[in-house]
């Protein structure tokens, strides 16, 4: 599974990108499970955010969804944080 996160906006206004390829990873199943849970509740189009809130574009194996702060589920928050922290 290929998971990409692009984060835009925020107080700073800087764009951040990171991605994770789970193939061959020992924790692949945990990633898959988290990604499925996050996408299950994702909206397919840009959701209006709030001033200075982050916008997230998450693409999993070619399928893209958008999230905006502060309307993220715990799974969505966990996924974007994990990808931005551990991804390349």
């Amino acid at each position: 599974m290929h998971i990409q996160v692009k984060r835009t906006g925020g107080f700073v206004g800087a764009t951040r990108r990171a991605e994770v390829d789970t193939s061959g990873r020992s924790d692949a199943e945990a990633w898959h499970s988290l990604a499925r849970e996050a996408l299950a509740s994702g909206k397919g189009s840009e959701r209006a955010g709030v001033p200075d809130g982050f916008h997230y574009e998450v693409t999993v194996d070619g399928h893209t969804v958008h999230f905006a702060d502060p309307h993220l589920t715990d799974a969505q928050r966990s996924l974007v944080s994990k990808v931005l922290k551990e991804g390349a």
């Binding site: 925020g10 107080f11 709030v50 001033p51 200075d52 809130g53 502060p70 944080s81």
Partner: peptide
Amino acid sequence: YSRHYDNAFWDG
């Protein structure tokens, strides 16, 4: 708010 969160915002 959240963990290691690099932001501040106004939620309305």
